Amino acid sequence: MKKLTALTGTASAAALALALSGCVANNPAGGDALEVTITDDGCAVSAATASAGPITFALSNEGTQLNEFEILADDKLRIVGEKENIAPGQSVSYIASLPAGDYFTECKLNMVGEGIGTAAFTVSGEGGGVSAADQEASDQAVANYVSYIKDQVGELVPAVAEFTSAYREGDDDRARELFATARTHYERIEPTAEAFGDLDPKIDFREPMASEDGIAFTGFHRIEKDLWAPDGFTPSDDAGRAELADGLDANVQELYDLVYADDFTVSLADISNGAIGLLDEVATSKITGEEDEFSHTDLWDFQANVEGASVAYGNVKDIAIASGAEGEELTAEIDERFEQLNALLAQYGSLEDGFVLYTDLSTEQVKELSDGINALAEPLSQLTHTVLGVPADGE
């Protein structure tokens, strides 16, 4: 279950002021990245302290299962940074921009359940200064992306209301038509939705994840199971449908209220890491076909995740270019890879006209899509380093 990510209030505002291209990684050992050794039952960080500003964590999953690295606020409830989908044997770099304060680090096996290896982590100091031009560019990127988040959530509310109304009234044909399209607004800004406590589990958890985390199976995918009932499953009665529909409406409305709160904001690192995270979503649950296991409408989610990643990337692209020749080269490659991936997806439909069902794809076609994701994931993984002015090796 997701804890609350600190996207709002003064802490994130302080982090934003530090997360600019004029900063360098203020880590121990002469600026080297902090090494995080992840196992199935441990989460060891090489140092318990760091200086305020962008902090690079070199994550290495030496375990046998998928894992997640989290940085928690001092209440151990709010997530202030996370890197999901770290596969066994994978080593990946992750940057979090942190103001001075007390935190905790931990890992989460299979990205569900209780944290593992929870340890205190202290950040001190003022962080690096930034130029007026850097601050202006960052402020503009944040303002634009916050507007995009609000726009998507604003469209999500009525789209979900229309979907749940059809489902509540027993118009299953209409509800099936609306299921995939209602979800697109959510999928485009999924990392933001995941930030708010248990809202994402309530809205979008799949049945195996809910079972593993010991929470009720509700939201989109529970309704999906009713609409595309598998053999041996008895769909909900009228009262059950009303409860599920009302719950989804209420949770989506809560997301709207949180996003439209006066103090809602994101950091520059949230934007670039969000682009990376959305692509990770495609590379894990979407590409395997497990996201929409009853309806097989995975390609709608796939496209929405890619679009959301493209928007997040677009909001920080100019900052990456301004970093110099390497930034120009990186953004040129990312642009090319996005274009290629979108061309692959266009072979199977569009959000406007609909896609083929995921089960209609051949093994070769799925592999081609997977290869397209991997081709984009490699340069995109360097985006946060470039935007924040932190070398990828943390030096």
Rank of each mutant, 00 (worst) to 15 (best):
M1H: 14
K2V: 11
K3A: 13
L4E: 13
T5Q: 14
L7V: 14
G9R: 10
A15W: 04
L16N: 15
A17R: 15
L18T: 06
N26C: 09
P28G: 02
G30S: 10
G31T: 10
D32G: 14
L34K: 13
T37H: 13
I38L: 13
T39D: 05
T39V: 10
S46C: 15
A47K: 14
A50H: 01
P54E: 10
I55W: 00
S60V: 11
E62M: 13
G63D: 06
E68K: 13
F69V: 06
F69H: 04
D74P: 07
L77V: 12
R78L: 07
R78C: 06
I79D: 09
K83N: 08
N85P: 04
N85I: 08
G89K: 08
Y94F: 15
I95W: 11
P99E: 00
P99H: 01
G101P: 15
D102H: 15
F104C: 03
F104G: 04
E106H: 15
E106G: 04
N110E: 04
G115Y: 15
A119T: 15
T122Y: 14
G125M: 01
G125F: 05
D139E: 15
N144V: 07
V146E: 12
I149M: 12
P158F: 10
S165W: 14
A166H: 09
D171P: 05
D173E: 14
R174Y: 10
R176K: 13
A182I: 15
A182G: 12
R188T: 07
R188E: 06
E190K: 15
E190Y: 13
P191I: 05
P191E: 14
T192I: 11
F196K: 12
G197L: 05
D200H: 03
P201C: 08
R206A: 08
R206E: 04
E207Q: 13
G214A: 02
I215N: 02
H221W: 13
H221K: 07
E224A: 03
E224H: 06
K225S: 07
D226R: 08
W228Y: 12
W228D: 08
G232F: 07
F233Y: 12
R241H: 07
A242E: 14
A242R: 02
A242N: 05
A245D: 00
A245M: 01
G247R: 03
N251P: 02
L255P: 02
Y260R: 12
A261L: 04
A261P: 07
S272E: 04
G277V: 01
V282E: 04
I287S: 12
E290N: 09
E290I: 01
D292Q: 09
W300E: 11
D301F: 02
Q303I: 02
V306K: 00
G314F: 03
D318Y: 07
D318V: 05
I321F: 01
I321A: 00
A322Q: 07
G324R: 07
I334N: 06
D335W: 04
R337V: 03
E339I: 03
N342F: 10
A343L: 01
A343N: 00
L345H: 00
S350A: 12
F355G: 03
Y358A: 08
Q365K: 02
V366E: 02
S370C: 06
N374P: 05
N374G: 15
A377T: 11
L380Y: 00
L383N: 04
L383W: 11
T386W: 03
T386D: 03
L388Y: 01
G389C: 08
G389D: 04
D393W: 13
D393G: 01
G394H: 13
